[in-house]
Amino acid sequence: MCGNEALAEAAILAGCDAYFGYPITPQNEIPAYMSRRMPEEGRVFVQSESELAAINMVFGASATGKRAMTSSSSPGISLMQEGISYLAGAELPAVVVNITRGGPGLGNISPAQSDYFQATRGGGHGDYRTIVLAPSSVQEMVDCMLLAFDLADQYRMTVLVLADGILGQMMEPIVLEKKPSRELPPKDWALTGAKGREQNIIRSLWLGEGVLEKHNNKLKAKYEQVQENEVLCEQYEVDDAEIVVVAYGVTARIVRGAAAKAREEGIKVGWIRPITLWPFPTEQISKVANEFRIFLTVEMSAGQMVEDVKLAVAGKAPVVFYGRPGGSVPTVDELLDKIRQLTLRHEIKI
């Protein structure tokens, strides 16, 4: 099973009632897999006429209380931003998968991490956030999907699973099993027909003086709760590290390889891997930021997450960036070189 198929099967395991999507490389295995498996499970699969339609089909299914998802790749996710903004305004749960590719524009189909800003800043118009999960292995593609549906339902938010073409295409051994679900609030807001109760209304329109402000403050309070409770990150050998590398997704794997080699050379390297890109592990990074360290952010972009790392480090240590934009993938040796250069430039004792 490739990463995309593993992710799709995990969605089924998570109780996804409906999948809506439109073809785009490199995520085509997801709709193909779903077109076969969802009907087998008596669930819904629709190939939409566009990403715009797909995200709005998700809106429709979600408004009735069903678990719904879509998947796409960067240009398609841009088209979905309208729908994601409406989902946020209407407080509807949804799971959106972005198997990213190089941009801007049609870019290319190589793996990239250049959608970080779009993913973590809301993406569409208005004052909102989406939860962003960044797996770094095929197993984590599975785990993130199981978590995504729960988070979406718990907070009535869009959860974006941000992976890249490598994770989508690659195969690795995985374990597929359902984990116990969190305790989730009842969907008493869902449109199920006003039978024996007052009508339910799902809307993102809040007219009248101060009404939208009140609504947005309610959203803000919810987002703060997410920041408080849902940050996920992994860190390794940071305690004695003189260089702390921050990377996510598949890049973090390459960093892991380079860090291990650097340690063999006696360079004290540790790494931090954000799993939730929003909420960002600001506190975790801030806690280890001090004047004796250098932070190196590695991304397959021209520099996006590095801004969040700088905010977290808050001037307490230098933050250096190394990136390969445009769908290029950094190699272990290239990162090792970068790490070696840092030890020279800052005269870190080995």
């Binding site: 490389t25 490199p26 189909i109 490598i166 295409q169 690659m170 195969m171 690795e172």
Partner: peptide, 9 residues
Amino acid sequence: VTYMPAYGA
């Protein structure tokens, strides 16, 4: 083990 195909265009 990992398996990674070239894909798409």
